[in-house]
């Protein structure tokens, strides 16, 4: 049996009125693998990462399915064990680096404190590890940055700090929730490169949430395409770009402008296709409500 880092089986996530945000989602991640989660806004791609990390919004519940982190059932754990397991095994790179660092605390403790908590390291050891990682993400004068407040640093620098903080405890899984969306284009490339480099060096598996098919092509080996919380396609990245099976995936690829070839035309996702998919989902919902009520 291969040791999967993450195994999500038939995950369904509901609102209290039983509206499904995720519908029977299954996916898995091998060590060192990058899987992209793509879809439009509201397709539920971020929700998968949140379900794994145990940070679903209030009132949103996992109603069915299992999440296995390093072959351990998260659902079977007590809240405290679960919290500690998630902290030891995984980390989050957030979307907006401007709000992801506490504005009133210096950078140093924000990286060092979690390391001490997760691994029980001494202050010196945790500090050394933080400096090592800051250096790795090309932060000049890491000592000085550790003593700075977030508002003294640029957005790109803050995102690199968050990447360093995510990789510092050596997690097996990193959830990257649109980590380049809030950054300007030149910084985006650099951040993407950095995540890929660190991921390869450490063999960390990454669940990479994005709506940008261009980013998908650059970073991932596998792709999961979501529409309205449902998996439309799950395939190796190469295969998706050479000839996607699902019409929605093809539509998404066609809707992506190419920065390498700006003259290439791109077409929005056809309205007819979206309408058809919604009808399918509505029928599915009707069935679900009848069966579960």
């Amino acid at each position: 049996m291969t040791r999967t880092v993450l195994d999500i089986m038939n995950l369904t996530v509901n609102l209290p009125n039983r509206t499904r945000i995720l519908r029977d989602v299954s996916l898995s991640l091998e060590p060192g693998e990058v899987r992209a989660l793509v879809g439009e806004s509201g397709a539920g791609k971020s929700m998968i990462g949140k379900a794994v990390l145990g940070i679903l919004p209030p009132k949103v519940r996992i109603s069915e399915g299992e999440i296995l982190l390093d072959n351990e059932h998260l659902g079977a754990m007590t809240p405290v064990t679960r919290r500690n397991t998630v902290a030891r095994m995984s980390a989050l790179i957030p979307q907006d680096p401007l709000t992801a660092l506490n504005p009133l605390r210096k950078i140093g403790p924000q990286i060092v404190d979690p390391l001490r908590r997760i691994h029980g390291w001494s202050a010196d050891k945790a500090r050394a590890r933080a400096l090592e990682l800051l250096d790795r993400v090309h932060i000049r004068a890491p000592e000085r940055v550790m003593a700075s407040y977030p508002h003294e640093l640029s957005g790109g620098m803050r995102q690199r700090i968050l990447i360093a903080a995510a990789f510092a405890p050596s997690p097996r899984l990193i959830v990257a929730d649109e980590p380049t969306t809030a950054l300007d284009v030149t910084v985006q490339k650099e951040i993407l490169k950095l995540i890929r480099e660190l991921q390869r060096e450490t063999g960390t598996a990454v669940l990479f949430v994005t709506h940008d098919m261009g980013v998908v092509a650059k970073i991932s080996q596998k792709v999961t395409v979501l529409f309205a919380g449902k998996v439309m396609e799950d395939a190796p990245t190469e295969q998706v770009f050479s000839g996607a099976a699902h019409p929605y995936t093809r539509a998404l690829i066609n809707a992506t402008p190419s920065s390498a070839d700006p003259s290439r035309s791109f077409t929005p996702v056809p309205a007819q296709l979206v309408a058809d998919l919604h009808r399918e989902i509505a029928q599915d919902d009707h069935l679900y409500m009848t069966v579960t009520s």
Partner: peptide
Amino acid sequence: VQDYATIARVRGFS
């Protein structure tokens, strides 16, 4: 509900 609080939760803080 700010991101920095979410991140602290992911890192295992109560």
